[in-house]
């Protein structure tokens, strides 16, 4: 039941990414190419997402619990640390190279193209390395 709900919500998420053309690396690179072929799409996608998520999160969090769990599972860390800053920087540099972030890469597996597959496998490798070299050691 829980997995089926998650699947349906994942379908909505993937449909949104595809409608907004976030699965196209050129769109992403163009957004960051302020000194070249700039394209504002990513800003409108994030704007559209926040238009739903800002009031939505506010409404949902007025509840004492989610529908199918006893508690909300929200991150409780508030401190700005070196890992957050370094991790975000490394992610950003990688995002700018390939034009894929995690969600669109997985959605683009549906394209049948080879790049999303290679990217996704490499990304799993990167997560594995981070866990082995840093996170699981602490």
């Amino acid at each position: 039941m829980i997995a089926l709900i998650a699947l349906v919500i994942g379908v909505v998420f993937g449909a949104g990414l595809t409608l907004a053309d976030m699965v196209n690396p050129q769109r992403i690179a163009d957004f960051f190419d302020v000194f070249g072929t700039w394209d504002a799409t990513l800003a409108f996608v994030m704007g559209g997402a926040l238009m739903m998520a800002l009031p939505g999160f506010w409404l949902v969090r007025r509840r004492s619990a989610p529908l199918f769990d006893d508690v909300f599972h929200l991150p409780h860390v508030t401190q700005l640390d070196r890992r957050l800053i370094l991790g975000a920087l490394i992610f950003g540099l990688g995002w700018g190279i390939g034009g894929f972030c995690p969600g669109p890469a997985i959605a683009a597996l549906a394209s049948g193209l080879i790049e999303p597959v290679v990217f996704t496998v490499s990304m799993v490798g990167g997560i594995f390395l981070a866990r082995r070299l840093v996170l699981d050691r602490a």
Partner: peptide, 24 residues
């Protein structure tokens, strides 16, 4: 398309928080 796609992504985030209490 960007606004509509973005709205769907945001909706999915809200639904996951509402249903399972999780961050998408």
């Amino acid at each position: 398309m960007a606004l509509m796609g973005g709205a769907l992504i945001g909706l999915a985030c809200v639904l996951l928080l509402l249903a399972l209490g999780r961050i998408a």
